[in-house]
Amino acid sequence: MSEKPNKLGSVNWEWEIKPETSWWNISLIELYSYTDLLQQLVRKDFLGLYQQTLLGPFWALLQPLLTVLIYVVVFNNIIGISTGSVPPFLFNLIGITLWNLFSEIFLQTSKTFSQNADLFSKVYFPRIIVALSTLWLQLLLFGIQLLLLIVAYIFFLIKGEVDFNLGRLLLIFPVIAITTGIGFGGGLIFSVLTAKYRDLLSLIQLIIRLLMFVCPVFYTLSMVPEKMQWLVNINPLSSLFEYFRFAFLGMGSIDILHLSYSTVFMLAMVCFGVMFFNKMSDKLIDVL
């Protein structure tokens, strides 16, 4: 804001359009005024996703269910990865649920610019609103999958194959928060990069696929050989999967130090992601 006197005295300009956006120029007041839009975008995407489909939101359940079945057959029955006393179905479902949260948020957020080029070149609103609406939609879909997981968990609980500890189970909330943050921050950074270099979008798909094997989705950290432990240690996601599984099953190795590393990594990703996105979003319109 600046003041400039004119013949009527001093005028308070309410806004300015300047060539450069500063790194810090994020107005929370402005963002707040767009909450209606955010809400509507989530609604639109959710409704649009399942309009004229047979199963509607059940698709959100079908995908993890089928994946789990394939994993159980391939990793546990054919390759023979042991899940101990835990039913392989539940073991894999836990991993896949958290993995889906991360990969979907990361992938969908990274498409923010490439998929909304038309909209962005016609009307102004803070671009991050679209990324936030993607985030909320993915959290909503994750909620549906989490329900599936809880139903499966209760089923095995009744069968007596797993045990229950409320204090332990509450751990899922920080784990979900950190996973979401890393996915969102990374997605924001890549959304800028993919807008500029379209080929990166296919690279992201590849990164996600490779990353899944580095994360303990269908194995536990204790199975990782000594030689490869460094890979586990530098991967900020690995402890999250261990904690998530621990919350439900009470199994696996947990390491507070590594969780703190993940938290710091998440905060750094989100801060840098938001700033980078905000700084670059105005310039990208010329490139899209």
Partner: peptide
């Protein structure tokens, strides 16, 4: 929507711009 390369625009009040009709319409809804 785009930033100027040089110069500055200052103003007061809420702006709405209509550069196209049907911006943001979702065909399925």
């Amino acid at each position: 929507i785009v930033k100027p390369t040089e110069g500055i625009v200052r103003g007061r009040g809420r702006i709405s711009s209509l550069l196209e009709v049907g911006t943001g319409f979702h065909a399925e809804l």
